[in-house]
Write a protein that binds this DNA or RNA. Structure first.
Lengths: 121, 121
DNA sequence: CAGGATCCTATCGGATACTG
DNA sequence: CAGTATCCGATAGGATCCTG
């Protein structure tokens, strides 16, 4: 990594975690080793192709470890690396924040679209 | 929000924070009120259109507050809401994790650009 | 100044079929 | 079983011009 152009940790990390699947996959892997097919079952709506692609991305980022067991049928296992494991509680914190934030919203009281327009000091 | 289809906090929050700009904008707003043009200066590479779009998305998510001051020239100010402010340290934690993770990689052992996969197409 | 409208490209994500 | 290859639609993001 160490992309000499951005060198902003937020930009860099979001390049890895952005999108629909990365954080979810990390979350599903927190319980321990999972096979490719396990992850498909965990999230039935991810396509075969995308699951492969996202797992590879996480592998390159050093977040998941991929282990191939030759044989037939083929078996491939995925685990979080130490870094990946360290990331889980941070993602949890964000999810928890969202829940608290979401619960705090009063859907009745705040039309939300209404501008507080024209304050004019 | 409260999308009745997903109802997974990780999925929901990532719909808001995913992408190149949301986390960066939140970060730039942590110091206090910023005008539209301030945010453009903070990040010169974001396009006019996208900056508008992302700020609106964050506003709808309850993370930023948008205030319009009528007059000419027009002035629009952006602030983090309480929820947005609460999110900042969580994003910081992720960025910090990335830095630590990145520093832990052995740059000598890993050519970094050279894919281990790139050996013969 | 802030932002809408339009047009365009690149990337994300999915469906399906094929292979070791 | 896990993965690749193709093809495709949807969305993210950008360039440019116009307006209150």
């Amino acid at each position: 990594m160490k992309s000499l152009v951005s060198r902003c940790p937020i930009e860099e990390v979001m390049q890895v975690l952005s999108g629909r699947w990365p954080t979810l996959l990390i979350y599903y892997l927190k319980d321990g080793t999972k096979r490719f097919s396990d992850l498909r079952r965990d999230n039935p709506t991810v396509s075969h192709r995308i699951l492969t692609h996202e797992l590879r991305k996480l592998e390159k980022a050093g977040i998941v470890q991929r282990t191939v067991f030759d044989g037939y049928p083929l078996r491939v296992e995925y685990d979080l690396t130490a870094a990946g494991t360290a990331l889980v509680p941070l993602i949890d914190a964000i999810a928890g924040w969202w829940d608290a934030h979401d619960a705090a919203r009063d859907p009745a009281a705040e039309p939300s679209a209404a501008e507080r327009a024209a304050a004019v000091p």
